[in-house]
Amino acid sequence: MIELLNYEFARNALIAGSLISILFGFLSFFVVMKKLSFLTVGISHAAFGGIALGLLIGLSPYPTAIIFCILTGFLIASQSNRSEYDTVIGIIFALTMALGVIFLSLRKSYTFDLMSYLFGSILGINKTDLLFITITTILVTLFFTLFFKEIIFITFDKTVAKASGLPVDVFEYSIVAILSFVIVFSIKLIGIILVSAFLIIPAATTIFIANNYKKVIMLSIVLNLVIFYSGFFLSYKLDLPAGATIVTIGALIFFATSFINKKFFN
């Protein structure tokens, strides 16, 4: 196991994975409380269209993916007060995937590794990815630390927060933008299809155990690290795809916790 650390790609993967686990563990509480699970699915799938467009016009896929994700996220967020909210997400996320497939088909060459974008290619994480992930982690941490109490108020009670003068709309769009960035930078780690699980599972699980939001956030971070490390090493041992192993472990922990909670505490 330790010998793994001799390889740079493994070290990169572990550092990136740790940072993203912490970041996602933290954001998870807000995603779950604000019921943004399906929004994160919409955003992550939009990345596919963005990546395909980047490849088509010969750019690095990150900028186009981020633009695609943010536009999609904003479009979805602008519909959040309508009753057809989930319908809108369902249609938009299919559309962005469809566009992605069209862009790919327009490309002449076929050197595109579709699976690695959809399900992650953890060992492909390089120094540049690591840099982006580190910067994003620092900025997001800064944002949430500075405005923590306001963000808690808005998350708890949007209407009253707005009435008392907090910039609710600015925050709602900020969180969409933040989710877009973190999702795009974690695609290599865990993949478009799997990434939202990493944002939903931790808080959905820890909320069974802890009765205070601060504890839920802390525990979600710890849990996400546990899920990531165990998935990472297990996938190495058993020679399984890392992203899928991580998500499977996370989901099992979620169901086990929910089962135990129902059985013993209700």
Partner: peptide
């Protein structure tokens, strides 16, 4: 300068927080 109590409870359901902390939010602005 304006305190508001909406007709329908507008808070997130199942948000894990104590009574004291909820009231403390009133101080945040």
């Amino acid at each position: 300068e304006i305190g508001y109590l909406p007709q329908q409870e507008s808070s997130a359901r199942n948000f894990p927080i104590s009574v004291f902390e909820v009231v403390l939010m009133g101080r945040y602005p």
